[in-house]
Design a binder for these strands. Sequence first.
DNA 1: CTTGCCCACTCGTCTATACGAGTAAGCGTG
DNA 2: CACGCTTACTCGTATAGACGAGTGGGCAAG
Lengths: 262, 262
Amino acid sequence: MSPLPSGLLGDLDPTSDRAVFRQIADQLREAIDRGRFHEGDKLPSEADLVEHYGVSRMTVRNSFSILQGEGLVHAEHGKGVFVRPRPPVRRLASDRFARRHREQGKSAFIVEADAAGSHPQVDSLEVKEEKASPDVSARLGSVRRVLARRRRYLLDGRPVEFATSFLPLDIARGTQIAEPNPGPGGIYARLEELGHRLDHFEEEIRARMPSPAEVKTLRLASGVPVIHLIRTAFDTEGRAVEVCDTVMAADAYVLSYQLPAT
Amino acid sequence: MSPLPSGLLGDLDPTSDRAVFRQIADQLREAIDRGRFHEGDKLPSEADLVEHYGVSRMTVRNSFSILQGEGLVHAEHGKGVFVRPRPPVRRLASDRFARRHREQGKSAFIVEADAAGSHPQVDSLEVKEEKASPDVSARLGSVRRVLARRRRYLLDGRPVEFATSFLPLDIARGTQIAEPNPGPGGIYARLEELGHRLDHFEEEIRARMPSPAEVKTLRLASGVPVIHLIRTAFDTEGRAVEVCDTVMAADAYVLSYQLPAT
DNA sequence: CTTGCCCACTCGTCTATACGAGTAAGCGTG
DNA sequence: CACGCTTACTCGTATAGACGAGTGGGCAAG
């Protein structure tokens, strides 16, 4: 156990009102912000800090748990505590559903990720008919049962997004939309072929901490929120033809929109 | 110390791999989800749970800290641990900058909040010239110095949003935009009067955990992320005339956008 | 009745200790 | 050389105890 390089971290202020574990967290946070530790770097171990500050181990662990809650660091059992690297982000532009992007055979996700040089994957595809939740039913205009298409998206092996599309049965049943592979251009291309010419989309965006199930599905580190996006697609007759419920790892996404000044 | 109503919470499973404090957190979370505790309700005290489960106090506190991290509950010193109430949310529609909303004398925030029956406030207004950050400079097209307008928005006394507008000095200096009160219709109305007819806006949206400074400014409970929105306003000549950097309490907002299907 | 104190209950902070379990490197054996 | 064991270091879980500080109700003194 080598001693900490002096000057890396300061001393405690016993006269301060601020709790000891907060002071330690402050010093570590500042050291990270100042670049004394870089992304992926290992922080001093709990034992190092116990010795450096002369406090008990639980106090040091409390400090780490603050930084974890802020999403700044993450602990790896048996290895240490590390500065959390910022993963590459996926930019979602507001023209991502433009008709011109629907020409190729592959899904938008695959095409875009390939272009960005990452390795895309789609898994846990599930297509089934089910009862519409009250929210989905309200958005689709009081339908009772829907076709649900669930899938998870991964970039370079890391899950980044979990999405479910809901479609009214009278539109989707028996069509290629109800097949695991909806064909070139995805379900939006199929909807248009079925006569539902798309007019516009509505997107609702929230951010919140993930549920335990979402932590598992997206393998989220602690201190990483999710972006919850609910998109409704409307055809030219004003009918809602699809609701897509998407939960994204917030550290992997930047959403981008263009608004007219009207 | 009255005993816990039996049946409210279950027992521990000693054979489970799941850590005891996680099992306790699971049971509390489930009880909340099932509506056994409602928004604002007080959960059993630490002492109650220590007795009920026969574990030490730190174990119970660990359970609470999980739920706090999930934004489900919050602790009040001397009172207890409570189910966190969901505050009313503010909906931001994508037409919120339409010219027709710029007619009245009051700011969009005030008008909208009044209509919703809440009490709006704007404070910590600061207007000053300063050096542009690299990011702002890049967005505004390599300007060195900018006019910065900072303000905080509150609803019914609760801070919900902190925003800073940056404008190139050659546009804003010496105009009413540089005054604390920019006049009816806000700075967008002034920009148009100055000949910068607005064409469109670009918005970038991220979600992340707040910095300690943001926790303080927005009085955020633990387990509440922030939505970070960066908007750039472009005039009809394609010039970026304003960058607005906004940090919102994520539990107080739903963003809503309309996209054309193109 | 009012005021002020005390006390019980609550969460916040901190110490000290113990054992478990994942990781990685070194070392010895086959 | 390859394999498996040991060992040291890491974080994870849990216990038991102590004192501090905010809150609110009850009780006693004025």
